[in-house]
């Protein structure tokens, strides 16, 4: 059949660029190289169970969660403002919001470094006011800030797109039935925007839990995240096997979080929105 034919290039692509690399990572994670060849082992996973590594995992999840929550708290109102009728030129607002995303990710994060540095813009301003300089850079807060700054658009855009698709007549119907502004939000707008919220959460949490650039630049290496750990194993230590094992663990964390999300989405499926 024609249909199958058309999907072949895609299958090849999947095989070459997704399946094969994954298989390799899996292979590395459960093997080790000895003098007499390659041997099957779980030792890398056992090693990861050591407190020092588990703490890194925990910290990664914690910082990612905090960032996701902050993104949600900031992003939802922003999406509402964008989707609202307040702006005449809505397209331009959304455009302005997206433009920073075109700038290089590293560049944006470096920009924050110069702002937060001991002798950076903010501290210069503080000393100009006669205040003592603050330790801003290389803190957990700085890492969270970097994550929120970089990933906020991934929260705002899906929520915005769901909100702007909500049929205005539903809001009118709720008002007609006696709902004031708060009730309309609670009973109609928010439930209908849940799919957007869920995809926003996923889209922020995943890059936040895997990032290694933000934590290295803004955390100054003091706040090793799981992403840094993997990077180190591959680039510095050269222990590809352990690095692969950590990668597998991280994939598990992500799969788990997606699983939780999609389960939650299923429970809301009756919504008939999609």
């Amino acid at each position: 059949m024609k249909k199958n034919w058309l999907s072949y290039p895609y299958l090849v692509w999947v095989l070459l660029f997704i399946f094969l690399p994954l298989l390799l990572v899996l292979f590395y994670s459960v093997t080790t190289r000895t003098e007499d060849g390659i041997r099957f082992t779980f030792e890398h996973f056992q090693r990861f169970m050591e407190p020092i590594y588990l703490r890194v995992l925990l910290r990664s999840v914690k910082l990612a969660l905090i960032s996701t929550v902050i993104c949600l708290l900031l992003g939802y109102p922003m999406a509402m403002i964008l989707a609202g009728n307040g702006f005449k030129r809505k397209q331009i607002m959304v455009f302005l919001f997206v433009v920073p995303m075109w700038m290089n990710f590293l560049l944006r994060t470096y920009a924050w470094m110069t702002l937060l540095e001991r002798k950076g813009l903010l501290n210069t301003f503080l000393s100009w006011l006669g205040l003592a300089p603050l330790n801003l850079l290389y803190t957990e807060e700085a890492v969270v800030l970097g994550m929120v700054y970089n990933f906020l658009p991934f929260m705002v855009l899906p929520i915005y797109s769901v909100l702007s698709k909500i049929d205005k007549s539903l809001i009118e119907a709720a008002e007609d039935l006696g709902a004031d502004g708060v009730t309309v939000f609670r009973k109609v707008i928010f439930p209908l925007s849940l799919p957007g919220v869920l995809s926003g959460i996923t889209m922020v949490f995943m890059p936040a839990v895997t990032t290694f650039v933000i934590s290295r630049l803004l955390g100054g290496g003091q706040f090793t995240l799981i992403g840094n750990l993997i990077e180190q194993q591959f680039l510095l230590v050269g222990d590809w096997n352990f690095g692969s094992a950590i990668s597998m663990v991280m994939m598990l964390v992500i799969l788990l979080s997606i699983g939780v999300m999609s389960k939650y989405e299923k429970e809301n499926e009756g919504s008939g929105l999609f």
Partner: peptide, 8 residues
């Protein structure tokens, strides 16, 4: 006119 029932 267009019902405006709540889909959720």
């Amino acid at each position: 006119q267009k019902y405006a029932l709540f889909p959720h």
